[in-house]
Amino acid sequence: MTAKHQRLTLALLALLAITGAALLALSGLRDQAAFFYAPADLRRAPPAAGTAIRLGGMVARGSVSKAADGVTTRFVVGDGQATTPVTYRGILPDLFREGSGVVAEGRLDTAGTFVADTILAKHDERYMPPEVAGALHKTETLER
């Protein structure tokens, strides 16, 4: 009986120690493990121009425009606190739209514009049929 209790205590202690170690490691990792920087992060600690980073946030409504060459898109990414202008040459993913989440891979140029090589659309946790979405916001969601 005592041996069993000893093993139980040891197992629980081991579990506690592992969890504690993991939590410590994770809190240390917090910033490095982020998949992308938000515009507010860039404003707080601007990376050197030319460093490859990812920028994530919401595509500001009304900010998307095509350049005269037809393949370059300009838009603004915002996170509610700051905004960053982005330019991208190439084909946008289907789910890229104004007011939706986006992750851009690329680098800041010296003027503070983010030059993207890749654009990924970020999906949020909301799933709904088109009728429901249309009733919520009738803007661009019914164009499909």
């Binding site: 917090r30 982020a34 970020k122 946790e125 799933y127």
Partner: peptide
């Protein structure tokens, strides 16, 4: 963390 994967859709407070 900031992730590409969306947050949890189904939580104790309901479903998104």
């Amino acid at each position: 963390w900031n992730t590409l994967h969306q947050g949890p859709s189904i939580t104790v407070s309901g479903s998104a």
